[in-house]
């Protein structure tokens, strides 16, 4: 009787384990398939334009005759928007994380954490909409521009989207710093801020760097908000106050208009490959930092 029950339990355990393994394998296969599909569709464009000209070409005129498939302006557009968002979101996000983790307690802390999570739950269309309606007119007025839809507008809206990731992961990393390090510092006569600055933050640095990279990864991959607020001009932006266009918004804006199997269609997939590689590298590096933390 006892033996039989043990067997049931074993089968059950085995079943659960199998199921978990299976879903893991399925998701890996799916990612693999997506990448293969992307590669297969995108690679065809390199019959028309070589990869170097594709990456470094300044002109993007996919429907003129003959077409120009150069995505440098799009890469720089993505880069400018991301850089701007990073400059705003990283210091703000990390200081907020320090504030929440180290200064606030009890109810205030809970409220702020819920607030941050709430921020993460706002759909990007809504963020884009707010950007158009509220922020763009302000930017236009303040800087006296022909249009308020600029790199800066995009950067500001995207920094809002990157904040939750940066704040919550950094906050976790800071909170996870063992109490015994703080005690050691305080017992040596360190002040609270010296303890935070010289002990807590260095101990949490792996997690904080990872948080920043994941936040930036989110910004690069973001499409909807950025398409709505950056003006979508496929030109190389020379300042933060000009419109630009990113890799993601190009795909989103043009995919609907292309004929499946056309050169333009393949070119959009090739942009997808570039994006995939960029985000993969960023997430992978973030992962390295996260694991370094655990050693």
């Amino acid at each position: 009787m006892l033996k039989k029950r043990w067997n049931h339990k074993k089968i059950f355990e085995w079943g659960i384990e199998g199921l978990i393994k299976l879903s893991g394998i399925v998701s890996i296969i799916l990612v693999g398939l997506i990448f293969i599909f992307l590669l297969k569709e995108g690679i065809s464009v390199f019959k028309i334009v070589n990869p170097i000209n594709f990456i470094l070409g300044k002109e993007w005129h996919p429907v003129s005759k003959p077409p120009d498939f150069g995505i440098l302006s799009l890469i720089l557009g993505s880069f400018a928007v991301t850089l701007g968002a990073a400059i705003i979101a990283l210091p703000l996000g990390v200081t907020s994380a320090i504030f929440i983790a180290e200064v606030t307690t009890g109810k205030t802390k809970e409220m702020l954490k819920i607030g941050i999570e709430f921020l993460a739950a706002i759909p990007s269309v809504v963020i884009g909409f707010v950007g158009i309606v509220v922020l763009a007119p302000v930017i236009q007025k303040v800087f006296d521009l022909p249009t308020g839809l600029t790199v800066l507008t995009g950067s500001i809206m995207l920094s809002i989207m990157a904040m939750p990731t940066i704040v919550s992961i950094s906050e976790d990393a800071i909170t996870a710093v063992p109490k015994r390090y703080r005690e050691a510092a305080l017992a040596l006569g360190a002040t609270r801020w010296q303890t935070i600055w010289r002990v807590v933050l260095p101990s949490a640095s792996g997690g904080i760097v990872a948080a920043c990279m994941l936040g930036i990864g989110r910004v690069i991959g973001e499409t909807m908000a950025v398409m709505m607020v950056t003006g979508n001009a496929p030109r190389i932006p020379h300042s933060l106050l000009e419109p630009a266009r990113t890799l993601t918004s190009t795909i989103a804006a043009e995919m609907g208009e292309t004929v499946q199997g056309s050169e333009h269609y393949f070119a959009l997939f090739a942009i997808g490959i570039v994006l995939f590689i960029i985000t993969f590298v960023i997430n992978f590096t973030a992962d390295l930092f996260l694991h370094k933390e655990k050693v």
Binding site: R180, Y181, P202, S203
Partner: peptide, 8 residues
């Protein structure tokens, strides 16, 4: 302290 706690 009881448990050695050098800073990381």
């Amino acid at each position: 302290f009881q448990r050695p706690n050098p800073f990381p």
